[in-house]
Computed example of a mutant assay.
Amino acid sequence: MTSPATPLYKRLLLTGAAGGLGRALRPRLTARCEVLRVSDLADLGAAQPGEEVQQVALQDRAAVLALLDGVDAVVHLGGLSTEHAFDDILQANIVGAYNLYEAARIHGTRRIVFASSNHVTGFYRQDEVVNPTMPVRPDSYYGLSKAFGENLARFYFDRYGIETVCLRIGSSFPEAKDRRMLATWMSYDDLERLVVASLSSPVVGYSVIYGMSDNHHVWWDNTSAKHIGYRPQDSSEPFRAAVEARQPTLDLTDPAVLYQGGGFVKAGPF
């Protein structure tokens, strides 16, 4: 989807740039800024034209403070993206998120696009439709950490005026892999559309939006996405026949089938 565009920011930071979504967004965001600063704990390779590369652990407060120096906006994908033991989640996702927001406050960064997760509401059933105003029901330590991140973002907006769009990302992969993903899937092109809309909308305040494509069956009411101009253009429907052939029946006694969080609702113990 990437096309020539007027840069939105002088320096944009992409954390978690070595992860699956980070790798997808990294080449797509260079047109949206004069300088793209990419960071991760993992190796990011050599800086590409228009990039700065920094290897940073989010739990290292001093390093994160330096990372935010000169940054106008952040796309924060960093941290652990699956279920782990709580102590690991605590450092990467909870302490790390606090360090990022505090560094943004100190340096005057005004907008953050925060990769939250559908697992914030994973213990709602698959026969329910959820909207961002409903109480959170985390399905895991991971989902719990993302609920903390959303509350952190709310506090930093109310107290310090740092705008955040919290993206409750569904399942962003090249294709829908199973029956659950027919509802939760988001293409990489729609991911880019959602992130760019979150960065470019004139006023976002504190917003919570589900990250999904224009799928036929959905569990999430994304009416609240309209004010940022996100309009998904892809759908999981082309994958339906192959998915249903692989999964012709479902075990309705399996919590992973009953609840929106899928396998996260029964991950662990650690």
Score class of each variant (00 low, 15 high):
72 D>C: 09
73 A>G: 09
73 A>S: 12
73 A>N: 11
73 A>W: 10
74 V>E: 12
74 V>S: 12
75 V>D: 08
75 V>L: 04
75 V>T: 04
75 V>M: 07
76 H>C: 02
76 H>I: 00
76 H>A: 10
76 H>W: 08
77 L>V: 01
77 L>I: 01
77 L>T: 01
77 L>Q: 10
77 L>F: 11
78 G>Y: 06
78 G>M: 07
79 G>M: 09
79 G>F: 09
79 G>Q: 07
80 L>V: 04
80 L>P: 00
81 S>H: 12
81 S>A: 14
81 S>W: 06
82 T>C: 00
82 T>M: 05
83 E>Y: 01
84 H>N: 12
84 H>G: 07
84 H>I: 00
85 A>F: 02
85 A>E: 09
85 A>G: 13
85 A>S: 10
85 A>H: 12
86 F>K: 01
87 D>V: 00
87 D>G: 05
88 D>Q: 15
88 D>I: 00
88 D>G: 01
89 I>W: 05
89 I>R: 04
90 L>Y: 15
90 L>W: 15
91 Q>A: 15
91 Q>M: 10
91 Q>Y: 03
91 Q>N: 10
91 Q>V: 00
91 Q>C: 00
92 A>I: 07
92 A>L: 08
92 A>F: 05
92 A>K: 10
93 N>W: 09
93 N>A: 05
93 N>R: 11
93 N>P: 03
95 V>T: 14
96 G>Y: 10
96 G>D: 02
96 G>I: 02
96 G>N: 08
96 G>T: 05
97 A>P: 07
98 Y>G: 03
98 Y>C: 03
98 Y>I: 04
98 Y>M: 09
99 N>H: 14
99 N>Y: 09
99 N>V: 01
100 L>W: 04
100 L>C: 03
100 L>Y: 07
100 L>A: 09
101 Y>M: 14
101 Y>W: 15
101 Y>S: 00
102 E>F: 11
102 E>G: 06
102 E>V: 00
102 E>L: 06
103 A>M: 07
103 A>C: 06
104 A>G: 11
104 A>Q: 07
105 R>G: 05
105 R>L: 13
105 R>A: 13
105 R>V: 01
106 I>L: 10
106 I>G: 02
107 H>I: 02
107 H>V: 05
107 H>N: 14
108 G>A: 13
108 G>I: 04
108 G>K: 10
109 T>Y: 08
109 T>K: 04
109 T>D: 04
110 R>S: 14
110 R>I: 03
111 R>P: 15
111 R>N: 12
111 R>Y: 09
111 R>M: 07
112 I>Q: 11
112 I>V: 13
112 I>R: 06
113 V>Q: 08
113 V>Y: 12
113 V>F: 14
113 V>H: 12
114 F>W: 15
114 F>M: 04
114 F>L: 07
114 F>A: 05
114 F>Y: 15
115 A>I: 09
115 A>R: 07
116 S>E: 02
116 S>Y: 04
116 S>L: 03
116 S>I: 02
116 S>M: 03
